[in-house]
Amino acid sequence: MAKLELVAELTGHSDRVWSIAWHPTLPLLATCSGDKSVRIWKRDAGNGSWGCVSVLDDAHKRTIRSCAFSPDGRLLATASFDASTAVWERDGDSGEWECLATLEGHENEVKSVSWSASGALLATCSRDKSVWIWEVVGESDFECLSVLQEHEQDVKMVQWHPTEELLASASYDDSIKIWREDDDDWYCSDTLTGHTATVWGIDFNETGDMLASVSDDRTLRFWRPDTSHSNAASLGYRQDPRWKCVHTIQDLHERTIYAVSWSKVNGRIATAGADNCVKVIEKEAMTDENAPKFETIVSLTNAHGQSDVNSVRWCPLNEFGDLLATAGDDCVVRLWRYVNT
């Protein structure tokens, strides 16, 4: 039997916790909240306990909806309902985080922020229906590379591909869009339709040949680029492969599914939603790549009591690959260990 064992309960936020970001190389995570602050939590190397080491609370005037570490772990980006995105730098000596830049331009609430695999690009999205791509210039400046306005509604989340310069965005218009760059600008290379309500969360698998998405329609969907080039109809007009839905898990949660995390360490998928549940899903071995099968192996109810679970994230470190962080409307962040007895 597989299950999630509670490892730690991180309290300190004074409003609902919206999102979680694990540090790419250290046993450390950042969480952001309606209390307009980011808290950095760290594992004590001595006794293995988790505690808050920093509170970043002087950059945003409204809710911080999303946070993300750069791939080298040096920078933290935070997206806020105050229409700005802040970029923080960690001082190597003191470990303190200092606001390096604020990126303005979105008309209203910024909903999500994501760093590209190389750390050279940053993507943000907003209720203004746009996705912005920023380039890191020099040590601390950012230039807007593109403003993409093809979503018809509020864009809920942006997520870069784990290795390529390819961006996925999820929206209230029920679609997911894939963005690529050509000689001069970014363009929408594919629109993934199938969800029948808001797409709230997306995540790639380790190699980036699959994308998982969760929605208000209570399904978890899996998408793969169709690389069978014999089928010309599957190609976008720039010869980009079309992404097709290869599996749908219906009624995974009883209410809206808000978040999905695909572990880059062990390949397990975790979801969380408004039904207060956290689920762990595993891909069955030896299934056809174009018709994969999945199994729900953990179903944890009331992970945050009677509160919605807003975010779920697997730890990316090999050593702690079984650690799962969740955040809820109860202002609490919980760390769980996946165990298979």
């Binding site: 830049a101 303005e104 331009g105 601390s140 403003v147």
Partner: peptide, 24 residues
């Protein structure tokens, strides 16, 4: 285009958006 306008207005913003280093 909008992207170039963005970079222009960012650079003309009076209170530096960069807290630590001087604005370009």
């Amino acid at each position: 285009g909008f992207r170039n306008i963005q970079n222009l207005v960012r650079k003309l913003k009076p209170t530096s958006s960069l807290r630590r280093r001087p604005t370009a």
